[in-house]
Design a protein around this nucleic acid. Structure first.
Lengths: 338, 338
DNA sequence: CCGCGCGTTGGGAACGTTCCCACCCGGCGA
DNA sequence: TCGCCGGGTGGGAACGTTCCCAACGCGCGG
């Protein structure tokens, strides 16, 4: 049994007694082929177990039928994995419907980012999904310049020009803080995310806006910068407690930071929610399993992924697509920590 | 500014005043080119910002420089996401070193599996990584038959013929149960994983072996089948408590099931670890955040991913590779639940 | 009865690369 | 001086597909 080469379109054509072109037409669903020829071709395809070589096809169509999902690994390492898992699930679901491949790219550092650049230039993908971009993301700028279809999860800033999908960070944060204020908490602190990311910024803006809407003056000394990590949450909680021992609630811009905050509060003997109420953001699996279970803002992560994929596909399909920028609603989930 | 086509090897050749072949030789690091020609070519490449079209290259080399990582979504939905995240991280790390692309494939059901089949037949990838295979996994059988390089995470059974990497499920489970027995627990129950998967089977075997090694007879009525899910763990715990109210320890074949078991124990007013000790398997993020923190068996998941990738790459590179089957060591992590 | 048009068909060229092979040229040994 | 050898080079073919265009046959109207 020697190494058999897989059948090509020529083999099929010969078998069906037609020309290459006719087979190609059948494959691509053209109308211009007699039903007789069509059935003969389909038979031959089945008999030979023929599958068109997508690489060869890609060469002439200049399409790869693949998109890249780029995730900075620094983020995924921070343990917000459930976020990425849900996002991937959403993206993947939509892509498989259209038989588009998903190329997953974890970038660890600058050198890998450059490599990605050349991989994109090598026409390996038809479009790019970019996650958790910082304000000055070189890659996004480059994609924009190249004119390669691109959709961001989140935006670089308020004046974003690329297409993006984000959850309602402003609304969600506002609701969370308003909820704390409504429950009679008078000194609501906040632990922010990285402030060089729009999410970080916007959730902080929500904290401010909730105060404003309640007719209160937000006390800026109750703001402590975090970095979305558990460790960062713990550290931030510590300095908040030192600086403002009288605080009676904390809004953390991520569940993970809330977990860190909970740990620190417990260490200091503050009871949650009796002494200090805590609300997170994301509704990751973690939130259900903390002690006490964490109140948090649920993001429609999977839906964000689905939407991103749909937008990207349409940008790839259309000649001159217009940018789409969507904000999906969040939902406050009240558990026992507030 | 009209739509500019990217430069091809011909453009570069013309610019450098050499033939296509010489450029190709420089690109592929051939020795047979004068240093003078080489520098001229490299200059031209830089000036034109040329990147070889990988699709065209793939057509003639019959290589795509990409591998697929196939994950059954039913599993990932079960919340063992951290597992997949770590695995992906490991795989990705090794792949980027060799500039190999990672194609992520989430299969939800049989139809998507068939689609995957044809995508593989369409020569889109050079090899496949397959995660959490059931005993009779059609896909694995198909890959084996096609002769496409394949590496499994875990094995289908003890007589696996494909290459695989797995963590030491037998050793880890044995150690966990031995630890419980050593602490004087006399009636150690176990909640198994899905028994149509080798992991499920083998961890149960570890439970038996620990008893054996301690010179005890394992009481088979203390075995309850689970399915790796939290819900399954809860249900299993319930029937165990009804059937054997005197049990004083539980070894769950996954952290998630352990979490379910903890919830059920709490509901019934059993104290952990005072009344009943609990040990899980996996050391996911969850384990650190349960109440009380969960003792568990740590798997070197990221290392499993790295190893899988390395084996796959070598199988792709070599003409007639021999199968590699590796078992990586686990480690018992004792926290407060035991 | 001829020509036109339309539905159908298939061959040639092109996509951008690699590989095979033939060629060129200079040096060196006979 | 001639032939041979070997390093360096480049053109042609091939990879498997799609698209363009020419051609075919048939029916129908003039």
């Amino acid at each position: 049994m020697s190494e058999r080469r897989p059948p090509t379109i020529k083999t099929v054509a010969a078998r069906a007694g037609v020309g290459r072109t006719t087979v190609s037409r059948v494959l691509n669903g053209s109308e211009l082929v007699s039903s007789e020829a069509r059935t003969r071709v389909l038979e031959a395809i089945k008999e030979l177990n023929y599958v068109p070589n997508s690489v060869a096809r890609g060469l002439v169509t200049n399409r790869t039928e693949a998109v890249a999902l780029v995730i900075p690994e620094s983020e995924s390492r921070l343990g917000s994995e459930p976020f990425f898992a849900a996002l991937i699930r959403g993206v993947s679901g939509v892509l498989t419907e259209t038989r588009t491949q998903l190329q997953l790219v974890l970038v660890r550092d600058e050198s890998e980012r450059d490599q990605l650049t050349s991989s994109i230039a090598a026409r390996r993908v038809d479009g790019v999904l970019l996650v958790s971009v910082r304000a000055q993301e070189r890659l996004a700028a480059m994609l924009e310049e190249m004119g390669l279809p691109t959709v961001l999860a989140g935006r670089r800033g308020e004046d974003e020009r690329l297409s993006y999908v984000t959850s309602d960070n402003l609304g969600g944060a506002t609701e969370a803080v308003a909820h704390l204020l409504r429950r009679g908490r008078g000194r609501v602190a906040t632990i922010t995310g990285s402030l060089d990311m729009d999410v970080g910024h916007t959730r902080l803006a929500g904290w401010r806006r909730a105060h404003e809407q309640a007719g209160l003056r937000a006390d800026e000394s109750l703001v402590e910068a975090g970095d979305f990590s558990e460790q960062g949450g713990r550290r931030a909680m510590r300095s908040l407690l030192e600086r403002a021992p009288g605080l009676d609630a904390v809004f953390a811009a991520s569940d993970l930071m809330a977990v860190g905050a909970l740990a620190e509060l417990r260490r200091r003997g503050r009871r949650v929610p009796d002494d200090v109420a805590v609300v997170g953001f994301e509704d990751s699996v973690l939130a259900r399993h903390t002690n006490p279970p964490l109140s948090t803002v649920r993001q429609p992560v999977e839906e964000v992924g689905r939407t991103m994929a749909r937008i990207l596909l349409s940008e790839i399909a259309e000649a001159d697509p217009e940018r789409q920028q969507l904000t999906l609603p969040t939902e406050l989930v009240v558990r026992d920590s507030s």
